[in-house]
Simulated scan of single mutants.
Amino acid sequence: MTYQTLEIEIKEGAAWVWMNRPDVHNALDEIMISELSNAFTDLGQKDSIRAIVLGGRGKSFSAGADLGWMKRAAEYTEEENREDALKLAQMLQAIAECPKPVIARVQGAAFGGGVGLTAAADIAVAGEYAKFCLSEVKLGLVPATIAPYVVSAMGERQARRYFLTAEIFRAEKAAEIGFVHEHCKDEQLDDLIEGLLSSLGLAAPDALGVAKDLIQTVSNRQLDETLMNETAELIASQRLKPEGREGLAAFFEKRKASWVA
């Protein structure tokens, strides 16, 4: 598939999805939103892909909404605005619910929608000069479509601060509050990601997708008999799947599982 705003690299079973509008700091517009949705849907269905890395070419990860797109949206009707916002929400959902593990590689600015992209990923790592900002309230707006992912990633208490103050917070603070998992020097980002990809490569492909679904199943639910039964049924069915049988056999036979390179 050919993209106008993205560059896709396939390396050793991992897909690197690069937002490729460096001249505008990878700002999101209608085309990029649609292409990100399509890319993650397509790559998520490929058996040959074990994980996906989302990054930005140039100085920034993503500076948020494209100015031209914002100007056009200002002239939309209420229904057109609703449809436009829904496409952004669906793109974030495509990333968050992709059956493959998704790693956000953040360098430079991640503002507005860029914060949402970071939050929608399963794992987020940031370079030392990465900076984040939820600036919407300064424009009389709110970070609505990205809110479910951002609040989940940083927690309600931190969201109360950064949604309301629109402060810039940097990589060290983002790691401190748990919004990103790790931060490092920019030149070490790819080595850090390669280490994560190596760890993911030891896991059974189907189990990774099921594990992602499991997080959604148990998140924000109180442990009760229904949840206990659901999780018991899940592990029972997983043990009987070919991956489960192979993984246990490999463990007891002290050999690599079939999916490990």
Results as ranks from 00 to 15, higher is better:
104 A>C: 03
73 A>E: 04
91 M>T: 14
119 A>F: 00
81 N>H: 13
75 E>N: 11
109 A>W: 15
96 A>K: 10
87 K>A: 09
119 A>D: 01
111 F>H: 13
114 G>E: 11
119 A>C: 01
117 L>S: 00
82 R>S: 13
114 G>K: 05
92 L>M: 09
88 L>V: 15
96 A>P: 10
77 T>Q: 08
125 V>T: 04
78 E>V: 08
120 A>Y: 00
88 L>I: 08
77 T>M: 06
78 E>N: 12
122 D>G: 02
89 A>N: 15
76 Y>H: 14
79 E>I: 13
109 A>I: 08
94 A>P: 09
81 N>F: 06
126 A>T: 01
126 A>K: 01
105 R>P: 03
125 V>S: 07
125 V>P: 05
83 E>D: 12
70 M>F: 01
120 A>V: 00
114 G>Q: 02
95 I>P: 07
98 C>L: 05
95 I>T: 06
74 A>M: 14
123 I>Q: 07
86 L>K: 12
110 A>W: 06
114 G>T: 15
102 V>D: 03
92 L>A: 13
99 P>R: 05
92 L>V: 11
111 F>M: 13
101 P>D: 08
114 G>D: 10
100 K>F: 02
90 Q>F: 15
72 R>N: 07
108 G>Y: 05
78 E>T: 14
70 M>Q: 01
73 A>L: 07
77 T>A: 15
109 A>Q: 11
113 G>R: 07
70 M>G: 01
100 K>N: 04
71 K>W: 02
120 A>S: 00
109 A>S: 10
105 R>A: 05
103 I>D: 03
103 I>N: 03
92 L>F: 07
106 V>T: 11
118 T>D: 00
122 D>H: 08
96 A>Q: 14
117 L>F: 10
116 G>T: 02
93 Q>R: 03
76 Y>V: 05
69 W>S: 05
110 A>S: 13
94 A>E: 11
90 Q>Y: 11
86 L>E: 15
111 F>I: 15
73 A>C: 15
111 F>T: 14
69 W>E: 06
70 M>R: 12
76 Y>P: 06
94 A>S: 06
97 E>P: 01
84 D>N: 15
123 I>V: 12
70 M>P: 02
73 A>P: 05
121 A>V: 02
81 N>S: 11
110 A>C: 08
124 A>R: 04
73 A>S: 09
81 N>I: 06
109 A>L: 14
72 R>H: 01
124 A>S: 04
112 G>Q: 09
104 A>N: 06
113 G>C: 12
111 F>S: 07
92 L>N: 10
84 D>W: 14
75 E>T: 10
89 A>P: 12
91 M>P: 11
79 E>A: 08
109 A>K: 11
117 L>V: 04
118 T>I: 04
90 Q>D: 12
124 A>I: 02
81 N>A: 07
110 A>I: 11
113 G>E: 14
105 R>F: 09
102 V>S: 03
110 A>F: 10
118 T>W: 03
121 A>C: 03
124 A>L: 01
107 Q>S: 15
126 A>S: 03
87 K>H: 14
103 I>H: 04
80 E>F: 09
125 V>F: 07
85 A>T: 07
